[in-house]
Amino acid sequence: MNTPPTPSGIETAPGPWWLRWVARLPLPWLRAAGAALGAVLYLGAVRRRAVVHRNLALCFPQASPAQRRRWAWQTFCHFGQAFVDRVWLWHAPPAVITRRVRLEGAWAALSEPGPRLLFVPHFVGLDAAWSRMTLAFDRPWATLYAPQSHPALDAWARRGRGRFGAPRIVSRREGVRGVVRALRDGAAVCLLPDMDLGAAQSVFVPFFGVPAATVTSLPRLAAAAHAPVIPVVARLDAQGYRVWVGPAWADYPSGDDEADAARMNAELQRWIAETPGQYHWLHRRFKTRPPGAPGLY
C-alpha cells in the first residue's frame, strides 16, 4: 500500500531552538533517555507502581508473578520512552515523523469526508498516532484533552498536539459539547474512553473479567453524529511506531449502550493481550466499584 500523502503548509511554529536540536538526536539515544526516565519513575513512584502491579494481577491472574513484573517494568520503560519521543514528534521536521511513524491497515478511510469517531485507547503511542494522522490527512480534526497540572507542561502539550492541521483541542472541562460541534463540522474526532471516569454516564461491564465502570460516550456520539467508529492502535517499536487503523466496526452502535461498551472492552482486551507492556496501566482502571463491591486498591 502506498505511503499516505503529507499535506504542505499546515505546520505551526516548531518551538524553542534547543528542543528542535534535541529532536534531531538519533532515535536510539532518545529511547535510552526515555528508558532511564522510566526506570527512575519505576523506582520512585511507589504508589503508581503498586497500581500497575494491582491492575496486572487483576487482568492477568493466569500469568506468573515474574511475567507480570516484566510487564510492569515495560509499562514504565515505554511510558518514559513515549514521553521523550514527544520531543521529536512535536519539534522534528515532518519528514522525520513520516519516516518513523508508519500507518498500517485501513488508513485510507481517514481521507474520506464526513464525521469519523476514532477509538484511540491508551497505548503509549497515542501521541504518535495523533501527530502522524493530523500530518498526513488534510481534514478537520478534534480530540479531547485533559489539562495538565503544570502550566508549562500544559502549554507544551497543547502546542504539540496542535502542530499539524489546526485541530480543535477540546478540554474535558468543556464536556462533549465541543466534540459534538466538531462532528457536526465533519471532523475526525479521536476519543479515548477506556479510562475510569466515575459512575456518571458509565455502565459496569467486564474488562478482563472484572466489572469496570465504562463510559458510553463512544456509541452515544456515534449514534448522534451517524459517524462510523474506527479503531486506532499505536505500538512502539525500534524504528519508531506502527499505527494500525482498523476497519469501521460493523453494526455499531447497536442501540444497547451496555452491549456496545462491553464490545469496546472486548476489542481492547485483544489488542492489549498482544503487547501488555505498552498499555497505560498506571491509571486506576477499577477505582469505581459497583454498589456494595469492595475497593480494589
Rank of each mutant, 00 (worst) to 15 (best):
A129Q: 03
F207P: 01
W90Y: 13
F286W: 08
G105T: 09
L135S: 09
L43H: 01
W71G: 08
V52E: 02
Y145I: 10
F79W: 01
N2H: 05
G240C: 04
H53G: 12
P167L: 14
A63F: 05
L30P: 01
G292F: 04
P121V: 09
G162M: 11
A223D: 02
S64L: 03
V180R: 07
P151M: 04
R102M: 06
F123E: 04
H78D: 01
P167T: 10
V203C: 00
L126D: 09
V232A: 12
V120N: 11
A262R: 09
P61Q: 05
A238Q: 00
L135H: 05
P206D: 03
H280G: 02
L27A: 14
T214F: 13
R20L: 15
G44N: 01
Y145D: 05
P206H: 03
E11D: 11
D257G: 02
V233H: 07
E112G: 15
G105E: 11
W107A: 04
W130K: 03
F123A: 05
G44Y: 02
D127R: 14
A128I: 02
P206K: 04
A23H: 04
A45R: 02
H226T: 12
A227E: 05
Q239A: 14
L192I: 15
A82L: 00
G15D: 11
T216G: 04
R48V: 09
V180D: 09
A212R: 03
R270L: 12
E274K: 01
I10L: 10
H122G: 08
Q201L: 02
L192Q: 13
A108R: 11
Q269D: 13
L19S: 11
K287F: 08
A129W: 02
T12C: 07
L221F: 00
Y252W: 09
